[in-house]
Computed example of a mutant assay.
Amino acid sequence: MAQDRPLTTPPARKPRADSVKNRERLLLAAAEVFRAGGPEASLEAVARRAGVGIGTLYRHFPTREALFEAVYRREVEQLVDLAAQLCEREPPIQALRLWLHAGVGMAATKRGMLTALALAIDSSSEIYAYSFAHLTRALEALLSRASAAGAIRADVGPEDVLQAMVGLSMMGRQPGWEANAIRLLDIFVDGLGASAIGEMPES
């Protein structure tokens, strides 16, 4: 009798290159379409912008919620990566400012998704917990660096700044809201710096 061969699990098949490329194109297109919002923010519009058929979109993202979550997670990951990059190449206060500007851009995409897809993300959801934890850690690194350099006051935490960014990003839907949110965030960051200067001991 032949000796039984041990059972082995076949290695997982890697996604095809064209499939990976299509998924990335769909995520980029979805971010642009959802950012614009309005009646044109449909899954069909996403597929058209990505240059693929609607069937390809559904193979990657069976529901609009799945597409929403993938886009949102991708933008959170990009913001986390950006924080590390800014810490390496920018002065502390400028790194914080540029990161908050990018955060407004992410909020703009999220607003478009919420409006177009009628999809609510509340504080009890898994994706809220995921994004809050990752963004808080990224912001903590930026704030700690700025505080250690004496560029901002030391008693502000990442939750405070994140709340300010989200609040300013969601305060209205009038034309030009994004530029206004960035302007107000700049004032907020300037205030943190001015407070730090005022607290520094005299020589």
Results as ranks from 00 to 15, higher is better:
Ala41Asp: 03
Leu139Asn: 09
Asp4Glu: 12
Thr115Met: 05
Ala30Cys: 04
Leu82Gln: 14
Arg5Asp: 11
Arg13Lys: 11
Ala36Ile: 07
Gly176Cys: 09
Glu126Cys: 02
Ala29Pro: 01
Tyr58Thr: 11
Gln85Asp: 15
Lys21Trp: 13
Glu77Thr: 10
Ile54Lys: 07
Glu88Met: 13
Gly103Asp: 03
Arg97Glu: 14
Arg16Ile: 10
Ala17Asp: 12
Ser147Asp: 02
Gly167Thr: 10
Phe61Leu: 06
Gly193Lys: 12
Gly191Pro: 11
Arg97Pro: 07
Val156Arg: 13
Val156Phe: 09
Trp99Lys: 01
Glu32Cys: 08
Leu57Ala: 02
Glu32His: 07
Phe34Ala: 14
Pro91Lys: 10
Glu44Tyr: 04
Ser125Gln: 10
Gly191Val: 04
Leu168Ser: 07
Leu135Thr: 08
Glu69Thr: 06
Ile152Leu: 11
Ala12Gly: 08
Asp4Cys: 03
Gly112Leu: 14
Ala31Thr: 07
Glu24Tyr: 11
Trp99Asn: 03
Leu119Asn: 08
Leu142Val: 13
Arg13Pro: 10
Ala154Asn: 12
Gln78Ile: 01
Arg111Leu: 00
Leu162Gly: 15
Gly198Ala: 15
Phe188Pro: 02
Leu119Gln: 09
Ser19Gln: 14
Ala129Asn: 08
Phe68Gln: 02
Val33Glu: 01
Gln163Arg: 09
Leu43Cys: 01
Arg183Ala: 15
Lys110Glu: 14
Lys21Asn: 07
Leu86Trp: 09
Ile54Arg: 12
Asp122Phe: 06
Trp177Phe: 09
Ile54Asp: 10
Gly37Arg: 12
Pro15Asp: 06
Pro10His: 03
Gly105Glu: 12
Gly172Ile: 00
Asp190Asn: 15
Glu75Phe: 01
Leu192Lys: 10
Cys87Phe: 10
Arg145Phe: 06
Leu57Cys: 00
Glu69Asp: 11
Leu67Gln: 05
Arg145Tyr: 04
Cys87Ser: 15
Met200Leu: 13
Arg173Gln: 06
Met1Ser: 13
Gly51Ala: 04
Gln94Pro: 01
Gly51Thr: 08
Ala179Tyr: 03
Arg35Pro: 10
Asn22Trp: 04
Ala148Trp: 02
Pro62Tyr: 04
Glu202Trp: 02
Pro39Glu: 01
Pro175Ser: 09
Arg59Lys: 09
Ser147Glu: 02
Glu126Ile: 11
His134Tyr: 12
Phe132Arg: 08
Arg59Gln: 03
His101Asp: 14
Ala116Ser: 11
Gly167Asp: 04
Val33Leu: 02
Leu27His: 02
Pro92Cys: 12
Pro6Ile: 07
Glu24Gly: 09
Gly105Cys: 05
